[in-house]
């Protein structure tokens, strides 16, 4: 696809402003700085060379030292007044500042004073340069995880040491594992540790708020290159060929359709909606549907409904309450 005219213009102006301050710069360095190819930089220089103020006599034009260009070095000799970088637009400033503020609040940054200081100073300089437009967008990601756990993980990542963790899965099963940490990643409301798990003999992602305890060992991490390539955060919930379940919800449970990756959502005329999803983790689904009980109208296939209802009845028995005579709760939830 051809490059957009506005994006190219921005780079053309950027090149002149940068060169005015930087002096002669090799074509390759310019290409790297502006995220393009040396061939494109050559074309940009050719375009700049014939641009200038009306009249377009030689003295009106942006000019370069021709001998340098032949050596692959771009040396600006006349900027025609275009020496200052362009200010950030409001939307650009908002996008950048919101991202930095969100980054600053993540556990991985908070746990490390040096990182924290760099993010803080970048944010400070940016807001100084852009003014206070930035409150239009306010993003906060994962809530504070256990500082201690996050700090141990960041330490092990930096030192490239193996970790020993105690982890509770979403089905409430606790396990102890040794893992080689690869990356700490915050995605929306949760932080994840991507790691090589020795127990599973495979790459795994762990939700940081479910890591009950983390201890840094003095064993160096091994090289799992190649084996780790496929760690994909999007695949956390991806179901593959797991069996399908269809659930009809009352409107109040809409967040389920919004936050849980589902195969499809169907809005029904009465405001209810129906989702179809792959059941990769029956324990999680059971627990979630009990939590949402008053807003669940129906579950199919029947075995899935029986699984949820059976677990709820067992729990009611412990409370000394019968599950009978409670049918109306599912029919007319929350009218009060």
């Amino acid at each position: 696809m051809a490059e957009r005219a506005d994006d190219r213009l921005l780079r053309l102006l950027g090149i002149v402003a940068y060169l005015d301050g930087a002096g002669p710069v090799p074509v390759e360095d310019l290409a790297r700085r502006f995220g393009t190819t040396p061939a494109q930089i050559q074309k940009d220089v050719d375009a700049l060379w014939v641009s200038g103020t009306p009249g377009y006599w030689p003295d009106d034009l942006i000019d370069f030292d021709a001998a340098s260009i032949d050596r692959g070095v771009v040396h600006l000799t006349e900027a025609r007044g275009m020496t200052r970088p362009l200010r950030l637009g409001t939307r650009e400033a908002v996008a950048l500042v919101a991202a930095l503020r969100a980054m600053k609040a993540t556990g991985a940054v908070q746990a490390d004073p040096a990182r924290s200081a760099v993010v803080e100073s970048a944010l400070g300089k940016l807001t100084d340069a852009t003014g206070e437009a930035a409150s239009a967008v306010d993003v906060r990601l994962a809530p504070d995880g256990d500082r201690q756990v996050v700090s141990v993980i960041s330490g092990a990542l930096a030192a490239r040491h193996r970790l020993r963790i105690r982890y509770v899965s979403s089905s409430d099963v606790v396990s102890e594992r040794e893992v080689d940490p690869v990356r700490l990643h915050t995605q929306d409301e949760f932080a994840y540790l991507a790691a090589w798990c020795y127990r599973a003999g495979a790459p795994r992602t762990f939700r940081v708020d479910r890591i009950l305890e983390a201890v840094e060992t003095d064993v160096p991490v091994q090289d799992h290159a190649g084996q780790l390539a496929e760690i994909d955060f999007g695949a956390l919930f991806a179901g593959g060929s797991a069996p399908l379940a269809t659930i009809r919800f009352a409107p109040r449970a809409r967040w389920f359709a919004e936050e849980v990756p589902v195969e499809s959502v169907r809005n029904l005329p009465d405001g209810d909606f129906e989702v179809t999803l792959r059941v990769t983790n029956p324990g999680w689904l059971r627990s979630t549907l009990i939590q949402l009980g008053p807003y669940v109208r129906s579950v199919s296939p029947p075995e899935a409904a029986q699984d949820v209802a059976g677990a709820a009845r067992e729990a009611l028995a412990v409370y000394g309450v019968t599950g009978d005579a409670a049918g109306e709760a599912a029919v007319s939830p929350d009218r009060h």
Partner: peptide
């Protein structure tokens, strides 16, 4: 308990599961 009851109502009780 309200949530548990609603969930329990999603499928009919089978013998031996429901205790009083």
């Amino acid at each position: 308990v309200r949530r548990l009851r609603a969930a329990a109502a999603l499928a009919p009780a089978t013998a031996g599961v429901s205790r009083g």
